[in-house]
């Protein structure tokens, strides 16, 4: 090992120590310094995006939106009952029908019978294309281990017909509720497996994103944790959470979103908690020999996997 160089008054340039002034002068020769007008044009170019040409559905007075079914057909039945109770004009599902839970094919007839309008999650994309993994976007080896277990189980237990149906679902939808135009996506408008958590999805990012997408509200899922931000511009960013497993809060309830046309052209947003027969789900998971770690989450409301992807604040309130 060579001795660490003393940089007093010096910088390393091309492997040699040179006077600092020489290094800084060399740096000044690189990079651009644009005029103000050019800078504004560059900034505008970066944030501009064309329209997506997706037809707008509706208008509706009240819609119910959920995501992340994760093969939880008990949770799905409960949310469909809730839709009737709320007299929702339309029901939307933001994808990730499989994974985690038992007997994935069971959710299909429930969705079609209730006329649920679905979009693809990363799970549907992977299953429909025969991809080798769920493309959930985890980075930790333990998280990936459990993701692989549930993906392989789900892939084995879905018929080719169900997978083909998943492949035909759209990637995004646009819905009018009252005067507001809602954009429905799985992860984010940019990427199917982007994680939009509450404490890492800031206002400046959302304002630009929703402006680019020319929508009044953006609804997503994928992270498993629900939140709602009303932006200074009056737009809404909503993660509807998931109905497949609890929200890592120590309760066994799951979450969905209810959106209603409000007074003065606004949007009323609720993210209600939903009871369902979680004990029956746990029993069925055990009968299918799914990991006990998953069953524990269903019975306690605390996540035991997918923890490494959580931001600092979400991890701090987590049990594990």
């Amino acid at each position: 090992m060579s001795k660490f160089p003393d940089h007093k008054g010096k910088a390393t340039l091309d492997g040699k120590l040179v006077p600092l002034e020489e290094f800084r002068a060399e740096c000044k020769r690189h990079g651009r310094s644009l005029e103000d007008g050019e800078r504004a044009a560059e900034a505008q170019r970066l944030v501009s995006v064309g329209g997506d040409g997706v037809e707008v559905e509706g208008p509706f007075e009240r819609v119910l939106v959920f995501g992340g079914v994760y093969s939880n057909h008990y949770g799905l039945s409960a949310v469909l009952e809730a839709a009737e109770r709320h007299r929702a004009d339309a029901i939307y599902c933001l994808g990730d029908l499989g994974g985690f839970g038992p007997k994935p094919e069971k959710v299909w007839p429930l969705l079609t019978a209730a006329g649920v309008r679905c979009i693809q999650g990363n799970y549907e994309q992977s299953l429909a294309t025969g991809h080798e993994d769920c493309n959930c976007g985890y980075t930790d080896p333990r998280d990936n281990h459990f993701a692989e277990l549930s993906y392989n189980y789900t892939a084995r237990n879905c018929s080719d017909e169900f997978k083909a149906w998943m492949g035909g679902l759209p990637e995004r939808r646009r819905v009018r509720v009252g005067d507001r135009e809602l954009l429905l996506v799985h992860g984010s408008p940019r990427q199917v497996n982007e994680f939009l958590f509450h404490t890492t999805t800031p206002v400046p990012f959302l304002e630009v994103l929703l402006e680019q997408e020319r929508c009044d509200a953006m609804l997503c899922t994928h992270t498993g944790l629900h939140w709602h931000r009303r932006l200074p511009s009056g737009r809404d960013a909503i993660n509807v959470g998931v109905i497949g497993r609890p929200a890592n809060d120590g309760t066994t309830d799951v979450r969905y979103a209810l959106l209603e046309a409000g007074g003065n052209g606004g949007l009323r947003v609720e993210l209600p908690a939903l009871r369902y027969d979680h004990e029956a789900l746990a029993a069925e998971m055990r009968a299918e020999s799914l990991p006990e770690e998953f069953v524990e989450t269903i019975l306690t409301g605390w996540w035991t996997t997918c923890l490494e992807i959580l931001p600092a604040k979400e991890r701090a309130t987590s049990k594990f």
Binding site: L13, C27, H30, G31, R32, S33, L34, E38, A40, E42
Partner: peptide, 12 residues
């Protein structure tokens, strides 16, 4: 030095 792209972010 070639890693430098500009003065302001908009230059880069």
């Amino acid at each position: 030095p070639g890693g430098r792209m500009g003065e302001r972010i908009a230059d880069t």
